[in-house]
Write a protein that binds this DNA or RNA. Sequence first.
DNA 1: AATTTTCGCTAACAGGTGTTAGCACTTTAT
DNA 2: ATAAAGTGCTAACACCTGTTAGCGAAAATT
Lengths: 196, 196
Amino acid sequence: MAKIKSNRNSTRKEVIITEAAKLFREKGFSATSMRDLAEHVGVEAASLYNHISSKAEILQEICFKVANLFMTHIEEVDSSPQSAIAKIEAILRFHIRQMIEHYEEVYVSDREWKHLTEPYMQNMQSQRRAYRQRIALVIEEGIRKGEIKAIDAPTAVLIMLHAVSGIESWHRSTKKIEGHVLEDNMVMILVEGLKK
Amino acid sequence: MAKIKSNRNSTRKEVIITEAAKLFREKGFSATSMRDLAEHVGVEAASLYNHISSKAEILQEICFKVANLFMTHIEEVDSSPQSAIAKIEAILRFHIRQMIEHYEEVYVSDREWKHLTEPYMQNMQSQRRAYRQRIALVIEEGIRKGEIKAIDAPTAVLIMLHAVSGIESWHRSTKKIEGHVLEDNMVMILVEGLKK
DNA sequence: AATTTTCGCTAACAGGTGTTAGCACTTTAT
DNA sequence: ATAAAGTGCTAACACCTGTTAGCGAAAATT
């Protein structure tokens, strides 16, 4: 009888979800089977169901945890008294750091959310749209105030957010530059590209 | 007896692959079944095998066709007598246009190549690495010549290429700006971000 | 020490997977 | 007109899918 939970301060459910995030990132949600997952957790497939209620639930937990993280952060930044360009930089840096530190879950949330079941998928879609819209508003504010060059704000948002997901290649590369160097480089290219 | 080929100048195999690209983009390679695909083509699943030899082959055709397209183009650009920054802009514009015009196949190639079977997956991985490397070399040339600011070249490549894949959101958005406006905006932000 | 809860196991399910065999009809080439 | 190739169908295969039922052992609670 193989027991889960070698890690002291995490529940068995958390162990399962963490391992699932790894597999979902490597092979995708659909291509990861519960038997796959079970094997990596060190348990039979059926035993997983003592801790989670379905495969779909695992994806939900990952996606909404990440979504909440970013939503909470953007609200904080948005209500702080900074210039628009400083806000954008703060948001960008937060994205980069999360992508570096919580790679698997952030990446999975970004790539696999379309496999959520209803009503979660609709919900996530709205949240994502709302999130991008908030950033776009900050950029438009920056344009009005003359801090940012006259570009299409939604396009700028799209570049920013997708550029960050490129950190995946960085993770997989053999000779990584330091995380903070990566961060500064990305900020330099993207934020300078926006400035007037 | 339902016949394929309503389009005059495309073989049945091409019709299948085009339809497969649509589905692979929407739901992912793994989540798309041959019965799914068959239904969209208007035929029984078994009939598909008169035109293709396996599901894996469809993905191979899509991925390598796209890879060859980009490889051919970069060779052309690379051997032309332009400044480094002009080369980067040319490559970027080509990516954007391909992503706009041949959306499904380019997108699928970029997102689903990990589901290729061996030895194709290794092959594709090498090709992708080589492709990024070529762009990085152009950027480093630009840095040496003082055209481009002193940044980490691989990071710049990663931003460029991933930013382009954000065009997916543009495709799905309801009120799209014009394609060439999108292109110019992306070039403005990204290329200006690189310039010294 | 007794009892309840937690958790892992085996076995099994109903339905989905990619794919093949074999046959009939239609289209093309001779 | 006849042969050959192309293309669709139905039926079936072996295997994989997520998930449930029911049982026994371990752990936690009383």
